[in-house]
Amino acid sequence: MAVTEPHELAAEDEHAHDHPSDSKYVQIALLLGFLTAVEIVMFVIEDSLGATVVKLGLLILMAVKFWIVGAYFMHLKFDSKILTGLFVFGLILAIIVYFVMLSAFEFSFWNDGFVDPGLPSSES
């Protein structure tokens, strides 16, 4: 397995200072604003697009906005890959938490015969 030497990491860190210019930051912010506007339009015309398309589209736009802020404003694109790894690790753990909770609730519902009070009962 290849081992990254400290001096290689330090050299990688030197590139960390190649950040975008102010005008580039403004362009990125405008893009983020535009994507937010697209999200709102999708929400407004949900009936014509269909719930599935809207959900999928909103999730994709959310992921794109997340990546843009992380990569450019938080400088992950320019900083050491160690930092990206740390952050992605935290995100993956958070997603695992969601699925663990989801599965725990589902199993609990099955075992206890739990009826979600938010959903209409099949007997009524």
Partner: peptide, 22 residues
């Protein structure tokens, strides 16, 4: 690592905060 300890600590904190919001 070439990364300052403070910066590394902040990223560790942010990664752990992902769990809270998750």
């Amino acid at each position: 690592s070439g990364i300052s300890n403070n910066k590394l600590a902040m990223w560790l904190f942010l990664a752990s905060d992902c769990l809270l919001f998750g």
